[in-house]
Simulated scan of single mutants.
Amino acid sequence: MRVVSLVPSLTEAVALTLPGVLVGATDWCTHPAGLDVARVGGSKYPDLSQVRALRPDLVLLNVEENRRVDADALVAAGVPVRVTYPRTVDGALAELADLLAELGAPAEPGWLVAARRAWAGLPVPAAPRRAVVPVWRRPWVVLGADTFAGDVLRRLGVTNLYAGHADRYPRPMLDELRARAPELVVLPDEPYRFTAGDGPESFPGVPCALLSGRHLTWYGPSLAEAPAVLAAQLADSVTYPAG
């Protein structure tokens, strides 16, 4: 089996579970450290000629990470693809188990077993906090309905104020975000790299939590440690003064 992954979290999952199966990955596939496979460009604009040259038995894609036009082009060229689209933690765990079994894993890897235990063992949040979750600025883009990251936060006691929006990634103006009167603003470091000096100043007087985007949005080995990492970062929220 020869696999090319255009999804960073799946790259990590396959590389750690089935060494030797992965033959290609994107330039953005940074985990595991020291991964030595052919690089085929970015997730959004991969070099499909390089992908085909690797003679993959399967190419891994994701609905949000990759473009439909690239998936269609690979299929038209006779390259088998598997498109993932988890929108909940349970869905991600199930998709990972199915994928790894299909690729030849004799049993669930230890990291996947640990991830199941970590998420199953979470206590029910006593008092969920109402939050907005920007994932981009200029323009502002926030998490809306039916997203994997939204389910991750829900399980950790964060209620997304845009979870009922018609769009999965609404683009409200900053004044609208403030008018929602959030009790918390969640700012991940990817896809936009929010930092202490870039993001929180737009929400003076509101606690802001800087989160690891990898632990919030990746579905792979990082799922095992995500509950503890994200819970600590949420608890470490900082309120920036008005003015």
Rank of each mutant, 00 (worst) to 15 (best):
A232D: 12
P46A: 03
A15C: 07
L122D: 06
R2L: 03
A196H: 12
V79T: 12
R82I: 01
Y192Q: 02
G144C: 04
L230M: 11
V135Y: 15
V21Y: 09
H165P: 05
D70A: 05
E176K: 10
A33D: 12
A149D: 04
A163T: 01
G150H: 08
G164R: 06
P204V: 02
R180C: 04
A181G: 01
L48I: 09
A77H: 13
V3K: 05
P221N: 03
P46H: 09
A15Y: 13
E176F: 13
T17H: 07
A127M: 00
R82H: 15
E183V: 01
E64M: 07
G110A: 15
L96R: 06
T159M: 02
V186M: 09
G20Q: 04
F148H: 08
P46V: 01
V75N: 08
V158W: 13
A226T: 04
Q233N: 10
D98Y: 02
L99T: 06
E201Y: 13
L48R: 11
G150P: 08
A13H: 11
P86S: 02
L216T: 09
A131V: 07
V69Y: 14
G205S: 11
R116S: 03
D151Q: 04
V113A: 13
E190V: 07
A53E: 09
A196N: 07
L216R: 10
P200K: 05
V4F: 13
L161V: 04
A118I: 01
L54R: 07
F148A: 01
V186G: 06
G41C: 06
R171D: 01
G157W: 03
A118Q: 01
G205M: 08
T84D: 03
Y85R: 08
G220I: 04
A73H: 14
V229E: 12
V124R: 10
F194M: 03
T239R: 15
